[in-house]
Design a protein around this nucleic acid. Sequence first.
RNA 1: GGCCCCAUCGUCUAGCGGUUAGGACGCUGGCCUUUCACGCCGGAAACACGGGUUCGAUUCCCGUUGGGGUCACCA
Length: 499
Amino acid sequence: MQKEVLTSAGRCTVYPHLLNPLDLTWNNCAMKIVTRFAPSPTGFLHIGGARTALFNWLFARRHSGAFKLRIEDTDRKRSTEPAIAAILDGLDWLGLKWDGDPIYQYSQSERHREVAEMMLASGHAYKCYATPEELQAMREAASAEGKRFRYDGRWRDRDPSDAPKGIAPAIRLKAPETGDTVIVDRVQGEVRVANKELDDMVLLRADGTPTYMLAVVVDDHDMGVTHVIRGDDHLNNAFRQAQVFMAMGWDLPEFAHIPLIHGPDGSKLSKRHGALGVDAYRDMGLLPEAVRNYLLRLGWSYGDQEIFSTEEATALFDLEAVNRAPARFDLVKLESVNAHYLRESDTESLAAVVIKNLEKQIQNSLSDIEKVRIERGLPSLKPRAKTLIDLVEISKIYISGAPKALTEKAGKILASEVSITLLTRVRADLGNVEDSDWTETNIEILLRDTADSEEVKLGNLAQPLRAALTGSDASPSLFEVATILGKEETLLRIDAVLA
RNA sequence: GGCCCCAUCGUCUAGCGGUUAGGACGCUGGCCUUUCACGCCGGAAACACGGGUUCGAUUCCCGUUGGGGUCACCA
């Protein structure tokens, strides 16, 4: 069905069947690839939109093409500035840089009208004077018969002189009535629908504003979009849009309709499920690279590989490997991917983030000593956190001062007389250590010796000490914690318990 | 309901006629260990069903069932 050809741009794949029956001239081979993300600014950038943007971005980068952003703001009532800001902000956070300035669809209205007029002139569109009441009657008649509503084409071939006075017409597409419209989708394959299933859709409303169906086609053409990668919910639209492309004699872009993301229960992703703005994921302490990696693997795969660097993703991503079935959103897996990226993160830059978040949370700035402790402690703190929030939480052990609260288990440990006795002994031994000898190795030797001489397991005295130093029964190596805290801070915390 | 799409462990998926059906998350047994993680080793867990085609179907075809999408002078 496809073959490799040589063009001035090098080798590329063409789909000869695209030439038939649409009789298109295939000239995309030599063209630069252009993708676009076209959200309507009626809300935040949700997870599905983020994935659509990601796939467009990756595909463009893979082929050294352009990734453009178009804000579909033709619905003036529902489009808002905050939504636009949220979308731009979300893309920015995910690191999906678009090329050039965003294009605002509303600003192209004049051009849309012009195209509608051209179609009118070429006979591919006609004026429809059907009133809202007539349309409503058609709708009711259809539902009474249990059929879906289809405009009956009553003005399709009517003489323009029949036009009623004082009624502004809508402009409708004169769609083919017989045959099939075929989309060769890079993800879904060849999809065909009978033209009799499609009615003559409105291109330009009676008030002169363009509909989405017209605007999308005109903008995609004008922007030079070669690949339309979007959610599967648009697959049905593609047929009608293809008809507009054909009516204008424009080349059809390649389509790739990627499956939607579902909630954990298989139903459409709702707010309840996590159809949140990407900002919500940021607030959950997730790293943008983790969200991106998770989204990439949701519906796309490359053998058994789970983790992809940006370089790998751009080198390997291709549309044909996108799964055709919808995927369920799994926050637990996202978190595990996040944990991976957290572990792999560069300590220095991660420390800066942790410190920033920590200061924000405690509404106070950290001392240099505390900052150094956190950076030193981070390598062994990282593997025990799934999110940045976890990491910030466990980093608190390095803030000066005795733990403000004890975990339940830590409380139990410190309530034991035996523990306190051992802790007292440990306090004395540690107090005798010279400042210059306060190293991880020495502390370990000392504690092991103490355990030996008391004839207890190391754990018996480690746990009370851990509770005293961290307020918890779980922490990184105590030898490390005590070393990083320093002699003074360590003794202070033990004394606070013994007091 | 019409039209369109989809169907491998609970979830994300590999597989593109012959495999002990592989990996990841989660669950679970163990090892490591001062605790908790990390890490390592092991385990349970899937081809929706029914017909074909074929020497042979998870894989190709048809149907059933089950999910999903879409049916505006919204986008």
